[in-house]
Design a protein around this nucleic acid. Sequence first.
DNA 1: CGATTGAATGATCTGTTTTTTATTCATTGG
DNA 2: CCAATGAATAAAAAACAGATCATTCAATCG
Lengths: 208, 208
Amino acid sequence: MNGIDATRQKIIDAAKRRFAHYGYGKTTMADVAADCDMSPGNLYRYFAGKLDIAEEIARAAAMRTVDELSEILIKSDRTAAERLHDFLFYDLRETFHTLEQDPKLVEMAQIITTERPHFHDEGLEREREILARIIEFGVLSGEFRVGDPEYAAEMIQAATLKFSYPQLFSRLALDRLERELEGVYQLLTAGLRAGVAAVPVPQSLVEA
Amino acid sequence: MNGIDATRQKIIDAAKRRFAHYGYGKTTMADVAADCDMSPGNLYRYFAGKLDIAEEIARAAAMRTVDELSEILIKSDRTAAERLHDFLFYDLRETFHTLEQDPKLVEMAQIITTERPHFHDEGLEREREILARIIEFGVLSGEFRVGDPEYAAEMIQAATLKFSYPQLFSRLALDRLERELEGVYQLLTAGLRAGVAAVPVPQSLVEA
DNA sequence: CGATTGAATGATCTGTTTTTTATTCATTGG
DNA sequence: CCAATGAATAAAAAACAGATCATTCAATCG
């Protein structure tokens, strides 16, 4: 029915407030239930458990991010390289600011990543899909020369890991991270343009 | 004097055995002192504290790694790209195997990195220096086209972070990490060959 | 007098008890 | 019946006491 979804949303909203304000750990199911004018036990008619509420909140946020990243695909008058730039910097800034302004969310993100590794993988996969399309676009436009966009997307994700979870992998400030990402981006796009053929190891070119 | 250095080394050796066998946390200063036939208090004539002994051990290991990486520079008949390949894979495999076979060292590495961030940075800097020389070699040989080898080295480090602390940043097995590193390497070398000029953003090439 | 000791100290860790909390489910109310 | 409750339970977290440990330093030793 629809009452179900409405109630689920009410629970999600209450939990989101609590999580953001007091943190995941300090928020009790009783708190959330009270905010929704219901008993703790009744929450379990709508969610399998506390972590599932958090996961739902994270999923919604991830979807929003993916939607915004997807818009990069439909803009016009932008080269593939520019789209890749948009993608990487949007991701860095978005994550950085979100976690910067609300440190409680770091806790939640970490718990979900630890307890539900699969959830996290799915998020990466969705983003990789968009990356692959950007690269595919670059291949079609003749800008990039890569045989397998999916594979190239995977490599770009690996190479930009440091910028996906800024405050997790470094203690650098945003401006320094941006400077580094700019450099990595330059290197990667130069590589995509030059092309990574099926040839695995190009033996020798010149020697000293 | 020399007795000082000899005693320091005796302490380091005893501590290394204890740390590797029982872990940093479970090893007490009293244990180490007993192994050296001295009182706990006397250790402080040779080291400022427990963590400083660990740091010294880590420093020696880091030096050894840097020495081995430096050998890549003096080999002959290898292109810069091949040297870069050697560097990246040596680092990945070395770190992976060290931490794989002795989980106790992971604890020590993590404590040092947390408590002495600067120490860790210095290690990165030493490795970056070698990377810069490899790139410089590539520039001189005409293989790479980059203006600032130091900067390029920094970017390569950023892009290969995931492979520097394998079991810290991913739960992937070594063969999958190697496969990914191979791909990232291909992309990066393609970029180095094509060159990352001072031109920041090459506006438009073709469109779909 | 420099080198070393070992007892003193305060911080940290460990194991235990108590309390809080997530989750279940038999019961109740509409 | 369906929705909701709230007492019961087991798991996790907090609180606490006791022990251990890193570190210091006044007193000894050579």
